[in-house]
Design a protein around this nucleic acid. Structure first.
Length: 362
DNA sequence: GAAGCGTGGGA
DNA sequence: TTCCCAAGCTT
């Protein structure tokens, strides 16, 4: 019994030292001028946290500013169309985040009187908000004690405790959550939360960590063993499969034909060029176009194949350009096809390579 | 519980 | 060039 009490006291003391060191470092070196740190509201914190999932700060900043300009409140967002939200998300990737953002905005307005619930279990029920994002919102927006475990914190803690296994493994993940919770302070929770992420992003970096600038250098076990640069162990990965597809750029005036993709799956809800799997030859292209659209195509040009890489496969894209005769260019009236003019862009979401092709081809 | 889900940048 | 993965969540 005595030993247990002593061990708890010792652990509390160590936690205190850790928290003090982190907060002192934050006061001197932490990031305090990011857009979502100004005019801080639960809405702004939520949007930023969703955008920042699997996405670096430098990428997010402009998207966040544009988004806030268009949707300054959760109420305005809740009235948006999915196309409009996806439009602002174009190029950011992981588009289910945008679809879930809109779903959650509607829930907040309809079921919560427009206010985010300051409760972990309630936040986690909302689409797109998992354990770490819920913790971040609670800590940063509401100043309540809560724990996050994002990529930054994982890296810091993996090194601090010299964890040599891959942190994605379920047992290790649970262990990391336990450590993160144990270290979480009650006081200055917002600064502490931000500090742990900043430390991972700016000092305890992936490749060459700047240990000489780290407030945890004396307690870091990986550093003690001299293997900090080797941790965390990287995910066991297979070579990505390669798929092939032809994208049709069917041009009329200053527009190309786009089709809306199904709501789920890759590029869900975005507008894409008509696609032919594998690489067709000249006659196959003409047959496809005639059968599907009843278009009359004057000439067909094959552009260079280029590679677009997703998280789980490569797509080698063969762009095929054709001019559509004006007299025969009727499209379906079901709202799933449009003529898209990049000079006067419709407010819809486009996959990055589609946007690239469309803007270069016209 | 493993796989699906984007994109861009750094090494 | 190729690999890795970044403020993870959903199914």
């Amino acid at each position: 019994m005595k030993h247990i009490i002593q061990s708890i006291k010792k652990s509390n003391l160590n936690n205190k030292k850790h928290q003090t060191a982190i907060l002192k470092w934050f006061d001197q070196h932490g990031r305090k001028d990011l857009p979502w740190q100004k005019n801080k509201t639960p809405y702004r914190v939520w949007v930023s946290e969703i955008m920042l999932q699997q996405t670096q700060v430098s990428t997010v900043i402009n998207y966040f500013l544009r988004f806030m300009e268009r949707f300054p409140t959760v109420y305005l967002l809740s009235k948006a169309t999915e196309d409009e939200v996806l439009h602002l998300w174009t190029g950011l990737g992981y588009y289910s985040r945008a679809r879930n953002l809109l779903r959650t905005a509607k829930i907040i307005v309809n079921d919560f009187q427009g206010e985010f619930p300051p409760k972990l279990s309630e936040l986690e029920k909302l689409p797109g908000i998992g354990p770490s994002t819920a913790g971040a919102i609670l800590a940063i927006a509401f100043g309540q004690k809560a724990t996050i475990l994002d990529g930054n914190v994982k890296r810091v803690l993996t090194r601090l405790h010299c964890i040599k296994e891959w942190p994605g493994d379920k047992k290790i993940l649970t262990k990391l959550w336990d450590i993160a919770k144990q270290l979480t302070p009650t006081d200055r929770i917002e600064d502490y939360t931000q500090a742990m992420m900043d430390l991972g992003a700016t000092v305890c970096t992936r490749g060459k960590p700047n240990c000489n600038l780290c407030p945890l250098i004396n307690s870091c076990l990986a550093r003690k063993e001299g293997i900090e640069h080797k941790l965390p162990k990287s995910k066991p990965r297979k070579a990505l499969p390669v798929r092939q597809a032809a994208f049709l750029l069917l041009k009329k005036d200053n527009s190309v034909l786009l089709e809306k993709r199904p709501p789920m799956g890759i590029w869900g809800g975005l507008w894409c060029l008509p696609e032919i799997s594998d690489y067709p030859d000249d006659s196959e292209v003409k047959k496809f176009i005639t059968k599907k659209f009843q278009f009359e195509i004057k000439d067909i040009k094959f552009l260079n194949i280029f590679r677009h890489t997703f998280s789980h496969f490569h797509l080698d894209i063969l762009p095929i350009v054709g001019n559509v005769a004006k007299t025969k260019s009727k499209i379906m009236e079901d709202g799933q096809q449009i003529w898209y003019n990049p000079q006067e862009p419709a407010t819809i979401g486009l996959p990055a390579p589609v946007k690239l092709l469309v803007e270069n081809a016209l």
